[in-house]
């Protein structure tokens, strides 16, 4: 007879698994450490930072630095306080995301669910915009906005950014993946195009809309070149657009305000990062399924 009792399996140390973890931890630190350095510096008095730079201890200056960052302006007009820039950033991020999603869904709905004579033409007109990012047509776009008198306005900031088809493309792909029978069933159930859109398609796309919103919000929030050109009034600065001025302040003034600068950088980072972390699953889904 064979002995069926066995010695409990020895817990072997798998070196390859350890190595995997070591690499991942190293990668995570590579990502995280710079932020920790910046954070440490926001807790220190400026004089100490100027002398010693980042250190391995936390100071007690976070509160005063926060006040300076949020309520004190650095420019000539005194209007670019942290709160003002934060507000502008939210308007840009949300306005951009909502605009893109609304226009994108409408256009995609028209392209996918209607028999339209010039559908192919409209398709090409819209999707050609995917070919050229704003950066390569930045100067003529600036001129157009200037001619329309939209400099230093949220309209001038947001609308030209919406002039590309990423969201339309994304929703078109998604609508095409919805089984055709659904629209057929709805038609037999007596739903017209408007009803079908509101009763069926929008609720069905909830996850996709959320995913798109996260991606577009982050994208809008992080815009730099366009706001740099369009908004020259300091009260129109977003946090990201203001970052250059913040760094230039570090050069010019008598006592560089590192606490304020670092904290503003952190505030510029925080909202999009938190959204991406908390809505990770939607975000990853939206990102990898849109492919663009």
């Amino acid at each position: 007879m064979t002995d069926i009792t066995q010695a409990p399996p020895r817990r072997r140390i798998r070196w390859s698994v350890l190595l995997d973890h070591a690499i991942l931890i190293f990668g995570s630190l590579f990502m995280l450490l710079p932020l920790l350095v910046v954070f440490q510096m926001t807790t220190m008095p400026d004089v100490e930072v100027i002398k010693n730079g980042p250190q391995l201890k936390l100071g007690g200056e976070l509160g005063p630095n926060f006040d300076k960052a949020m309520y004190k302006a650095s420019g000539f007009s005194g209007l670019n306080t942290g709160t003002r820039m934060l507000y502008n950033s939210f308007v840009l991020g949300i306005g951009f995301a909502v605009g893109k999603i609304v226009l994108g869904m409408m256009a995609a709905y028209a392209l996918v669910y209607f028999r339209l004579r010039f559908a192919t033409l409209a398709f090409w007109l819209i999707f050609t915009t995917l070919l050229l990012p704003l950066e390569v047509r930045i100067l003529p776009s600036y001129e157009v906005v200037q001619k329309m008198g939209m400099l230093n306005s949220f309209n001038g900031l947001i609308i030209p950014l919406i002039a590309s088809a990423t969201a339309t493309f994304f929703f078109r792909q998604y609508f095409r993946s919805i089984p055709e029978e659904l629209v057929e069933a709805a038609r037999i159930d007596g739903a017209g195009p408007v009803k079908f859109f509101i009763d069926i398609l929008v609720p069905l796309s909830k996850t996709m809309i959320a995913a798109m919103f996260i991606i577009m919000f982050v994208f809008g929030w992080n815009q730099y070149l366009w706001p740099t050109m369009i908004t020259t009034d300091e009260d129109m600065y977003t946090l990201v657009r203001g970052i250059k001025q913040i760094t230039q302040d570090l050069e010019g003034t008598n006592i560089p305000e590192y606490g304020r600068a670092n904290l503003l950088a952190l505030i510029a980072i925080l909202p999009p990062v938190l959204i991406v972390i908390f809505f990770q699953n939607w975000f990853v889904k939206g990102l990898t399924e849109s492919d663009k």
Binding site: L24, G27, S28, M31, L32, V218, W221, N222, Q223, Y224, V240, I243, K244, A265, A268, I269, P272, V273, I275, V276, I277, Q280, V284
Partner: peptide, 12 residues
């Protein structure tokens, strides 16, 4: 831990 930096703007 490895993906959150995605949300940081290039100038930042």
């Amino acid at each position: 831990l490895l993906m959150w930096v995605y949300a940081i703007a290039p100038p930042v």
